[in-house]
Design a protein around this nucleic acid. Sequence first.
DNA 1: TCTTGTTAGATTGTCGACAATCTGCTTGTC
DNA 2: GACAAGCAGATTGTCGACAATCTAACAAGA
Lengths: 229, 229
Amino acid sequence: MAKLDFGPIADTTRRAEIVALLRRAILTGQLEPGQKLNELRISEQMRVSRAPLREAMRELVQEGILTSIPYAGTFVIDVTAKDIIDAYSLNKVLDEFAIELAWPQRDPRFFDEVDRRHEAVKQATRAVDTTRQIETALQLHGLIYEWADNSVLLETWQRLTSRLQMYFALHQRARNEPVPAEDVHETYVALLKGADMRAAQRHAREHIDLDFEELLSYARGLEKRVSKN
Amino acid sequence: MAKLDFGPIADTTRRAEIVALLRRAILTGQLEPGQKLNELRISEQMRVSRAPLREAMRELVQEGILTSIPYAGTFVIDVTAKDIIDAYSLNKVLDEFAIELAWPQRDPRFFDEVDRRHEAVKQATRAVDTTRQIETALQLHGLIYEWADNSVLLETWQRLTSRLQMYFALHQRARNEPVPAEDVHETYVALLKGADMRAAQRHAREHIDLDFEELLSYARGLEKRVSKN
DNA sequence: TCTTGTTAGATTGTCGACAATCTGCTTGTC
DNA sequence: GACAAGCAGATTGTCGACAATCTAACAAGA
C-alpha cells in the first residue's frame, strides 16, 4: 500500500490569510519600509474586521518585519545598512552549520530537490520575474536547512529569510535594470551534490559575499525615510 | 550638564502585561508543556477581555513557546529530547560567533556588567531561588550577545533563551533536589575578562556540554504528555 | 514671537456579543 | 453490540461599538 501521509489541512482562518497577504506585500516591497499600516483602511480594503487584522499584525511584528509603537501605530521595519550587514554575517555562520548538519543527511530525495529548486530559479530568471526569482533562490538556499534536521535552526533561518527577501526586493526595486541572466547558482549546486563538504561551506560563504557587496552598496545609499500615512 | 537620555516609556497596554504574565508562567513551568490555554478562563482570571489576551497569545506563538491549532486551541509547546538537543547545538554555534564579535567590543562597562551579573547569580544561588538563578545565569550568558552589536544575532539569542529557560525550569522542577551550591560560572567569567578569545570560546562550548548532559538525561525521561484542560 | 493650554479629529486599544467550528454524548438503526 | 447521525455544550474566530490615547491646529498669555 502506498504510504500517503496527509499534511495538515489548510488554516482557513481569516487571520492566516491576512498574514500571508501582508507578508507578501511587505516582502515584495509593495509596502515600503517605515510605512504606517492604518488598521481601519486595511480592514476595509480586505473586507475584514480589525480583530483578525490586528492579530495578524502581531504575528508579523514578532516575525520581525513589522514594528509597533503603542497608541502610535504599526510600521514596516526600517532597513539600515547595519541591519543588512548583521543579517548577512549571521547568515554565513548559520549556513556553515547547516551544511555540516545536512551533509550526512543527503539522500536521493535531497539531490532531486536540489535540481528541482535550481530549475525553478532558472525558470524565474528566464521569465524575468524578479520577485519569483528571489523567492526561488532563497528556497534553493534553504534546502540545506530543511535537511539539517534541527527545528530550531530551521526556524531561525526562516525568520532570517523574511528579511533577506525584503532586502533583495528593495535592492532590485532600487536599480530597475533587468536581472542578471547568468546562473550564479551552478557552482553551489554542483558542490552540494559533490563530496567535499568544506568546499561547499567555503563556497557558500564566498557566494554570499558576492551578493552581499551589491546589496551593501544599495544599503549605503539608503536615506532615512519618513513614515507615510 | 549631565547627559541623561530617557529611554522609551513603558508599554502600558494590557496586551504587553499579559504577554509578560503568560511568558513568566510558561518559563517558570507553572504552565506545563502541552497544556491548553483556555481563553475565557484566563481572560476572566486576569479581568481582561479576550481581544488583548488573544493578541498576546499570538505573540507568544511567534516567539515559539506556544503553539496554536485553528479552532482547537493554543497550547504550551511540547518539549522533546530532540528539541533540547537542537536548541543546544545551535546555541553552541551562536555562542562562538557572539564571543568573536563581542571580543573587540569589550570595554570597562562590559567588565562591570560581567561582575554585576555574576554577583546576581551567586546571590540567587545563596537564596536558593531556583527560578531567579536560571534567569540570572542566562542573563550573564547573554552579555556577550548584547555586546556583539548585531541586532539579528541578539534577537535570535533572545528567542533561544526563552526555550532554554523553559527547559532548565522543567529540569529543575523534575528533580526537586536543591540547586548545586558551587559556582560553575567562575571560570567562564575569568575567561571573559582575560585575553585569550579562543580559550573563552572553547570553554563556552565545554561548559555548555556539561549542563547539557544533565538536561539531556532529563529529556530522555520525558514521556508524551496529554493535553490538559 | 515663543510658549503653554485647549480642543477636535483621527487612530489605536479594549470590550461584549454573535457566528463558526469542534467534541463528546445520546439516540436510533442494523 | 457496533456504528452512523444528530444534537447540546463548550471553545475559538470574528464583528461592531466604545474608551483611551495621540496628533495637529488653534487660541491665550507672557
